[in-house]
Amino acid sequence: MYSPPPPFQPVPAPLPARRWWQHPALIICLLVFLPPVGIALTWTSRWSQNKKVVATVLGALWFLLLLLSDSPDDAKNDAKDAAKPTATATATAPAATATPSPTPSPTEETPAMPSLVGGSYADAEQLLTDNQGRAEAAYGDVELPAAYGTWTVCFQNPRAGAPVSSAVPVVHLTAPGTPCPKAPGEVLHKPAPKPAPTTQRPKPKPTQVPVPTQEPTPEPTEDDSSSGGSVSYRNCTAVREAGAAPIHVGDPGYGRHLDRDGDGVGCES
């Protein structure tokens, strides 16, 4: 049976030989050291479209980073330029410092701490602001409110007359109408003393007297006789057979079961 020949399939053309500037290692090195050249050669390589785009973006970012950052040589040159005027000034310094200049007195350099105790915080606020000072409550259990310009200064540090720069200025304040404590940090609202515990003797527990239990008296049985004798009759028939009918109270064998009417005489008929 005849079969048709397979359809003609064109043979793909062979790829041209790769040039030396298309080698991946060379392109990567140029992207690191010469980003513009590396980006240009990236688009002549046999990489896929996505790889070319990624390599171009990374190379451009790296090139911008190199442009914006200072090179080590420029930093060294800037350091040398900054050191040159210092060396010149040092060389000419002995001629200028041949005659010692008079040192200013301490009172002219730093002002003395004024007396702030007794005044309001508003009077000392400017001094504390200029010297990075702070205000605190004179009592340890009192917190400063949001506005305390009218509060009274009780303590100050440093003391009056000392240089302001000797320590960070600190003032301790109290509310208007509140007396100052003897020392900073005392407690204003002291807790009320607790009452002394009273020793009370425990009350004796009442003793429970056991209630005597009364045992019920056993009811006499029908076989019991009022005379307490050992003779007993089961019924009137037995009394009649024994010849003791009628039987009276006190007779041997008398029992209530024999005397139905309770008149003291049993087995009458």
Rank of each mutant, 00 (worst) to 15 (best):
H257C: 03
W151C: 01
G229Q: 02
L188H: 08
G161C: 11
L65E: 03
G243L: 04
R234W: 01
P216D: 13
E222Q: 03
S226P: 11
E186Y: 06
Q132D: 14
D141R: 02
P169T: 03
P111H: 01
A17N: 03
S115Q: 13
L34G: 12
L65F: 12
Q9K: 08
G262V: 04
Q132R: 04
T97E: 09
A93Q: 06
G228I: 08
H248A: 14
G140L: 09
K80H: 03
D78R: 10
L65D: 03
N131E: 02
Y148F: 15
G253E: 06
A244R: 11
D141N: 13
P14A: 15
S48Y: 03
E219S: 12
C267S: 09
P12T: 10
P24N: 04
T217C: 06
A75E: 08
C180L: 04
A192Y: 02
A25L: 14
T103M: 07
K203P: 01
V117H: 01
G262A: 13
A135H: 04
T237M: 02
E219P: 03
E222L: 04
A244N: 09
P212V: 08
T217S: 11
T199W: 08
K182M: 04
P4A: 11
P12R: 05
V57M: 09
T44H: 00
A146W: 04
G38C: 13
N157P: 01
D259S: 06
L173S: 05
V249W: 11
H23N: 12
R159Y: 07
R19P: 00
Q214V: 15
